[in-house]
Simulated scan of single mutants.
Amino acid sequence: MGNDPGNIGIIAGGGQFPLLFLEAARRAGRTVVVIAHKGETAPEVAAAADAVCWVKLGQLGKVISFFKANRVSEAVFLGSITKTQIFRDVLPDLKGLTLWNKIDRKQDDAILRAVAGALEQEGISVRESTLYLRHLLFPAGLLSRRKPTKEQRQDIEFGWRNARAIGALDIGQCVVVRNRTVLAVEAIDGTDATIRRGGLLAKEKAVVVKVRKPGQDFRFDLPATGLATITTLRSVGAAVLAVEAGQSLLFDPEAMIREADAAGIVVVGVTEREDGTLDF
């Protein structure tokens, strides 16, 4: 029993990431305890958990009490929370309200770091979201049959610099460009909405660039793409998806690339060298 890592807790948002992690953690021999968010977490995640507690955003005291009652020693943050819920569906308890009032900047990283700090003060260590899922990291190089043209390569490089800049400001992780012009910047509405906004302005052939924020904490909000991303790109006639390799998640890669090839969309994993040049 001396090597028993204890139970692991998932603070689960939406999407498939919490379920994939839960299954991988169980294969690793862990008992999995889930905090599920009303209106966000899939019922399948709650059904698969060894123990589950449904909460609303802000119920930090309830989260900590439930984890302690279920002997959780480590926790992970997984899945998306619809960011607009921050303004309409929050029901903070006393602990959550106290923490909220201490946070100067109501932005993703600041909020998540504060919650992680509160958990760690209670003896619950917050681990990276890729703990059992390193194989889901976006690969480097060309994934699609179609290669980027010279003009698209220039757009990727231009978009990369702009995506890095908005990431440094903790605004978002994705930009949409065409002809070295920024058409849309990700904000609270998320990646798919950003692609739709930029794609409509581009009319066609938009280039979408998605990167990890500078100093991005692997415990929180890693960029993620998948089949749904390609469906959105296809709906606006976009031409390219360029994603930072090794720093973001890729779901359903085979189905995603099949769909991209069918639509003639370029998909590429980009690596930045120390001198700032890009490989892709």
Rank of each mutant, 00 (worst) to 15 (best):
G2A: 12
N7P: 05
G13R: 06
Q16P: 04
A25S: 14
R26Q: 15
R27T: 10
G29A: 10
G29W: 15
R30S: 06
V32N: 10
V33H: 07
I35V: 12
I35M: 15
A36T: 11
K38S: 10
E40N: 14
P43T: 04
V45E: 14
A47F: 05
A48K: 13
A48P: 06
D50Q: 05
D50K: 06
A51K: 15
C53Y: 14
C53P: 07
W54F: 13
K56W: 13
Q59D: 06
L60M: 09
K62V: 02
V63W: 06
V63E: 15
S65F: 02
F67L: 03
F67R: 09
K68R: 13
A69S: 14
R71L: 05
V72Y: 05
E74R: 12
E74V: 01
E74P: 02
V76I: 10
F77K: 07
L78Y: 04
G79Q: 06
I81H: 05
K83R: 12
K83C: 00
Q85W: 10
F87N: 06
R88M: 02
D89I: 00
V90E: 10
L91H: 10
G96V: 00
W100D: 00
N101C: 03
R105M: 01
K106Q: 11
Q107W: 01
D108G: 12
D109F: 01
A110N: 02
V115Y: 13
E120P: 08
E120C: 08
V126N: 10
S129P: 04
Y132P: 01
L133A: 13
R134K: 13
R134D: 09
L136T: 12
L137T: 09
F138S: 09
F138N: 11
L143D: 05
L143R: 07
R146S: 08
K147T: 00
K150T: 03
Q152T: 00
Q154I: 00
Q154K: 11
E157S: 09
G159A: 08
W160C: 03
W160D: 02
R161P: 00
R161M: 00
A165G: 04
A168H: 07
I171M: 07
Q173P: 00
Q173N: 11
R178T: 00
R180T: 02
L183M: 06
D192T: 01
T194L: 02
I195T: 03
R196M: 03
R197I: 01
R197Q: 05
L200M: 12
A202N: 11
E204Q: 12
E204W: 04
K205T: 00
V209L: 08
V209T: 13
K210I: 09
V211T: 15
P214G: 08
P214R: 15
P214S: 12
D217K: 14
D221W: 07
L222H: 08
L222F: 07
A224R: 07
A224I: 06
T225L: 09
G226V: 13
T229Y: 11
G237F: 07
A242Y: 10
A242D: 15
G246N: 13
S248C: 14
P253H: 08
A255G: 15
I257D: 07
A263S: 14
I265L: 01
I265P: 01
V267R: 04
V267P: 06
V267C: 14
V268M: 07
G269D: 03
G269Q: 03
V270K: 02
E274V: 03
E274W: 09
T277Y: 09
D279C: 03
D279M: 08
F280N: 04
F280L: 15
